[in-house]
Amino acid sequence: MSGAAGREPVFPTRQSLGLMKSKLKGAEVGHSLLKRKSEALTKRFREITRRIDEAKQKMGRVMQIAAFSLAEVSYAVGGDIGYQVQESAKQARFRVRAKQENVSGVFLPHFESYTEEGINDFGLTGLGKGGQQVQRCRETYARAVETLVELASLQTAFVILDEVIKVVNRRVNAIEHVIIPRTENTIKYINSELDELDREEFYRLKKVSGKKQRDVAAADAELLARREQEAAEAIAQGDTKAKPEEEAPDAPDVLGEQEDTDVIF
């Protein structure tokens, strides 16, 4: 496994080398982007966590005040209004609306509280006695619930962010520890294979060119011998034709070089 896991199953060709190189580049860019995203989210996350902590403490106080205002009501009404309140509840006056907030590509919901006007189930509660306290208690509790709703937004954001950060971090780690080393390994492997091929090719070419040179040299020698023979014959006729004949042995050499580059391709 270790040998195979180290690289991708590709043929060591120049084309796949190019592919791998662009892949590595992409992975690196993606990594740095994700890393930044994760950092941004974590920053946000920490801020939310801090605010949750604060809000939870605040909630304790607010709820205490609210509970106390209910005590005031029972003092003023001189009895229990709980049951009556439960029975007269019909339509929610206090509702929430969910909104979205975009943090580094993550949609965090944000609850917004609003009151549905015109719904008033408890307008007459405590009509004969304690109505003002009831009214005040309602306001206190409405404020308390607003705090709670705020806290609920934070908490939902917390849960979602927690999840998203986990996913992002997993990706970052995957890129950093698996994809990038693997791609690098593949590139290394392709390079070494290509180098190997190069060396083989070079050696082969050397061999070929050596053989060719030998052949050429033999041909030259033969030619020379013939030429000398001819020259010897020509000496008899005259010296004039010797120069143009000398250009000819260069031509196969040029051809050999062209063949060389062709192979590299």
Partner: peptide
């Protein structure tokens, strides 16, 4: 009672 009812009925459908 009369006073309370009056005060508490402000702003209701009564």
């Amino acid at each position: 009672r009369a006073i309370n009812i009056t005060l508490n009925s402000f702003g209701t459908e009564l």
